[in-house]
Design a protein around this nucleic acid. Structure first.
Lengths: 214, 214
DNA sequence: AAAACTTGACTGACGGTCAGTCATATGGTA
DNA sequence: TACCATATGACTGACCGTCAGTCAAGTTTT
């Protein structure tokens, strides 16, 4: 029973990973299920034994990626030895939150062809991360580095803005436009959370290191 | 020649309106082009004479609706007799920006079935309204009621948050959750624009009048 | 033997194409 | 003015290819 379950889980994961790869290469719409099963060398029915629809595997991909991220974020958020600002720095310094897993493929993600992928990811990201971040904000309130009346709602708003406007790949901004928006976002975050100006400088650290690369 | 051209425009609009109606009733995906042409009593080819794809008419619907809104917004924004805060009040008081045209149908729009409709609408709304609002913010800076370093980027962030989180129908929030988020949003807007607290009270006026209805 | 898993041919829906029809307009000719 | 030829734009609907999803039957595992 255990080995079966494990095997089943493996198959499921194999489909997820294969689909993820193909979706990122060619886009969700341009990837027929036939392509996935051909790549895997299995029959159509096998796919539908594990997933009930095409969208279903999309949701699974997002859930899988997001679980990894949530794990990391939660670990930091729950570390009682860290103050709120340190937690924020660890979570937000460098580039986007979602980068950890997707990493080098991020470029491909920005194809207009991948709207479906983004859409689901963005919404889920906001919904799952906001309660965790809200805890940190509350901690920051207690530590007197933040001053926020509605921690959850505020962080949810900020995450939404950041996710959809910057990380989501929905808007096709140029490199410079992204920089401008990230700088503005830092100010908005500081003001919204009631933190001192420049408290969130770490959000844009890497921006200037990489600025001259292209 | 003129009458021909006009007739052409009418047909195009007829398709847009028919498609809009069916999309809102049954969702974008669940509305085959065959349904649109059947409703109109024309042939498939007629549709493709005016639109090159199914997505094409979606974009046209959004463009049409948005043009109406942009017109209204621009009129207020360009009124030299109004100060920035009055403009903001006129544009933001009451409920969502996008309500003017969609109005009573808003409920239907919240079906999960209409993601495609939202997505395009949301993005376009942000892109087209942000430069106009930015002008108002700059005016507010000059009038010393606002204090914003990055007017365009800030307003774009705020619009994105508001649009996707609240107006977009992407998140299925309950009535109470929406109220909480709108209250939080007011504070964020005030802080981000550097306005005095409660300056944007008008954003949530109608909230409390309607609160007891359901 | 039962249950879990796999197969792949098949179906139906649907987006999109295209050769062709028809009414009206334009314009040349006598 | 009457007549014919040519062009144009709107429209038709049969047809095609793709693809998500089904299912009855087979194979493997427990």
């Amino acid at each position: 029973m255990q080995s079966t379950t494990k095997k089943t889980e493996e198959r499921r994961l194999e489909i997820i990973k294969t689909a993820e790869k193909l979706f990122k290469e060619n886009g969700y719409r341009n990837t027929p299920i036939d392509a996935i099963i051909k790549e895997m060398g299995v029959a159509k029915g096998t796919y539908y034994y594990y997933f009930k629809s095409k969208e279903d595997v999309l949701a699974a991909i997002v859930e899988y990626q997001l679980n990894l991220i949530v794990q990391t974020v939660e670990q930091i958020a729950n570390d009682t030895s860290l103050d709120a600002l340190t937690k924020m720095r660890l979570l937000l310094s460098g580039s986007h939150i979602g980068d950890e897993d997707t990493g080098e493929i991020v470029e491909q993600l920005h194809l207009p062809v991948n709207r479906e992928l983004h859409e689901v990811t963005n919404i889920q990201t906001v919904l799952r991360l906001s309660p965790i971040f809200a805890k940190i904000v509350e901690q920051g309130n207690r530590e007197n580095v933040f001053n926020t009346r509605y921690p959850l709602e505020t962080i949810q708003f900020l995450l939404t803005g950041g996710q959809f406007l910057l990380d989501g790949g929905l808007f096709n901004f140029s490199k410079q436009e992204i920089i401008d928006r990230r700088l503005a976002m830092q100010e908005i975050v500081e003001k919204a959370l009631g933190a001192e100006p420049r408290t969130f400088d770490f959000m844009n650290n890497k921006l200037f290191e990489e600025e001259n690369n292209e």
